[in-house]
């Protein structure tokens, strides 16, 4: 089983649009939407849910007022400023349990809470593992780990050879959880100064976790000078540029219709560029040592 993660550092560079199109080209695969904060891939892949499970990722401290002796030790010891005037703020509480441990009156307990849901579904190209974190919750990295676990499980059961992960923006915990152990990390970059800055950090992160990188330049014709800079940077660092995809309003039109670009406009230049990109990604995957 091979695994690829699409990431970007900067948000909104086209990860989900490309993931959906790649899925259409791969024909039979498992797609995992690892952007559990703000998942969008289901709008294009329209999954039919087979299994839904609760995600209990963290705990929250709850105080029994009748037992509280108002000593204030909990407030003093909480490092997240989650207790103010003996009132626990469930939003700031990280569920560490310090307050419950230090409370001399045993007035505080840690309760498990449902932080979101994970789903395993069928799609027209195979299967999809996805989730939804409740807004404002913590531990999205843990939920990503569950989504990837579910993806591997269904892939094994259904004998699917490829898992394609759509990663979240950033380079922090949910992104790290999206890339650990994959064969390839494809960084989607737009030719803007911010895009380049964020790509460099995303590539450093991949390097830190020893994951083979590839770069795909989206909306490359927005600024040719920056596109050249990206290509030079990749050349200097021995990273292959797998694709160059032009800026075209049909990408948004396809999204409005709830379709992948390949279905919406199969003969367009963008679709051709996406096909070329995907075949280079598969080539690169073929040359990566199977672990």
């Amino acid at each position: 089983m091979r695994q690829i993660t699409i990431l970007s550092g900067k948000g909104g560079t086209g990860k989900t649009t490309l993931t959906a199109s790649f899925a259409a080209l791969a024909k039979r695969l498992v797609v995992a939407d690892c952007d559990v904060d703000a998942p969008d891939l289901h709008m294009l892949l329209k999954p039919t849910v087979m299994r839904k499970q609760e995600f209990r990722g963290s705990k929250v401290a709850v105080m029994d007022r009748s037992k509280c002796i108002k000593c204030g030790i909990c407030e003093e010891r909480c490092r997240f400023n989650a207790i103010n005037e003996l009132e626990i703020d469930p939003i700031l509480c990280e569920g560490c349990g310090v307050c419950a441990y230090v409370c001399p009156a045993e007035a505080i307990t840690l309760n498990e809470k449902v932080c979101g849901y994970a789903y395993v579904s069928t799609i027209r190209y195979g299967f999809m593992s996805h989730a939804r974190l409740n807004p404002g919750e913590e531990n999205s990295g843990k939920l990503v780990t569950l989504v990837r676990h579910n993806a591997r499980q269904i892939a094994q059961k259904e004998k699917v050879e490829l898992i394609l992960n759509d990663g979240p923006p950033g380079i922090g915990c949910p992104v790290i959880a999206s890339v650990t152990g994959v064969d390839l990390g494809v960084v989607v970059v737009e030719p803007t100064l911010s895009g380049i800055h964020d790509m460099e950090r995303a590539l450093k992160m991949l390097n830190h976790f020893q994951i083979n990188p590839l770069v795909c330049i989206n909306k490359y014709d927005l600024n040719m000078e920056n596109t050249k800079k990206i290509e030079e940077f990749c050349m200097d660092n021995g990273i292959e540029v797998a694709g160059r995809i032009s800026f075209d309003p049909i990408v948004t039109e396809a999204m409005v219709m709830g379709k992948t670009v390949l279905e919406y406009s199969p003969n367009s230049a963008v679709s051709r560029e996406i096909r070329e990109g995907w075949s280079r990604i598969l080539n690169a995957l073929g040359s990566v040592d199977h672990v």
Binding site: G11, G12, D35, V36, D37, A38, I91, L92, L133, P135, G136, E137, E138, N139, S140, P168, P169, G170, G172, P174
Partner: peptide
């Protein structure tokens, strides 16, 4: 603020 809807966002807008 950062994108998303989980703890880093809450921390930022709080």
């Amino acid at each position: 603020a950062p994108p998303g809807a989980s703890c880093p966002v809450v921390e930022s807008v709080y």
